[in-house]
């Protein structure tokens, strides 16, 4: 579980996040939603420890990130997996080498065991390791790159998984595959997963615990089932920007 308490973050005197408090539970999908520029990515990077926050606390279980030394943060990061918006695979390495990279750096197992673990992770994300292992990231599709990035993120059995807009640039079918994959892995390994997204399809598919950020402030919190009855103007403007969701709301609530 990750707990954020009264988090403030500013850049050059401009406050980007104001008094954010939230609890991200393990074994379920936690989503941070909001418009572009609302502060979602800053919040995620602050929680990970890539940004030093101005005030507040970030608890990973019983460990306070804000009190940790650089060395302790480094150790914590070995328990963290992250899926980046653009996959961020190392383009000088093959698919297998990408997945093996965290194992090579931190695992004391034999080379054979590392290869086996990497192949297992690739199979877990529904990639045939025999077909893709020797390919370079530029030789596979965007959806496959995302899956390889997930395989790399879970290689070290992380306790925490962060996904920054995992569906961006993907077609709806592949996006759904990625969503289901993240949900499955989260439940199977009881990981605390935080997803940054503004994809409402993803929210309605897998969002168990959602926080909505508006201009750096937490404006709403709930589950996907609560969205249609939230009565929050900012959230309504965000969620029901598309006619499709307006129609779904009408069919469900009669409003």
């Amino acid at each position: 579980m990750i707990e954020v308490k009264n988090l403030y973050k500013s850049f050059d005197g401009k406050e980007v996040l104001k008094d954010i408090s939230a609890t991200f539970k393990s074994g379920e999908i936690n989503q941070i939603i909001g418009q572009s520029g609302s502060g979602k990515t800053v919040l995620m990077k602050s929680i990970i420890g890539l940004f030093r926050i101005d005030r507040g606390q970030i608890w990973y279980g019983d460990r306070n990130l804000t009190d940790m030394t650089r060395k302790e943060i480094k150790l914590l990061h070995q328990e963290v997996g992250m899926l980046f918006q653009g996959a961020a695979l190392f383009d000088s390495m093959t698919v297998l080498e990408n997945v093996m990279f965290p194992l090579e750096m931190f695992s004391k197992t034999t080379k054979k065991e590392k290869i086996e673990r990497s192949r297992f992770c690739l199979e877990r994300v529904n990639l045939k390791s025999t077909q893709v292992s020797s390919l370079f990231p530029s030789e596979i599709s965007g959806g496959m790159q995302k899956r390889v990035a997930i395989a790399r993120a879970i290689a070290l059995n992380p306790k925490y998984l962060f996904c920054d807009e995992p569906n961006s640039g993907l077609d709806p079918v592949t996006a759904l595959v990625i969503d289901r994959l993240i949900e499955g892995i989260t439940q199977e390994y009881n990981i605390t997963t935080i997803i940054n997204t503004h994809d409402m399809n993803s929210v309605m598919e897998i969002g168990a615990n959602i926080i909505f950020i508006e201009k750096g402030v937490k404006a709403w919190e709930g589950s996907k089932d609560d969205i249609f009855t939230a009565h929050n103007e900012a959230l309504d403007n965000f969620v029901f920007a598309s006619n499709l969701y307006k129609k779904i709301r009408t069919s469900q609530t009669g409003k």
Binding site: I48, L50, K74, L75, L76, H77, Q78, V80, G81, M82, F84, Q85, G86, A88, L89, F90, D91, F101, P102, M105, F106, L156, F162
Partner: peptide, 10 residues
């Protein structure tokens, strides 16, 4: 973001 990916791995 490949460098960020490395940092996050520790």
């Amino acid at each position: 973001e490949q460098i960020d990916a490395m940092e996050i791995m520790g």
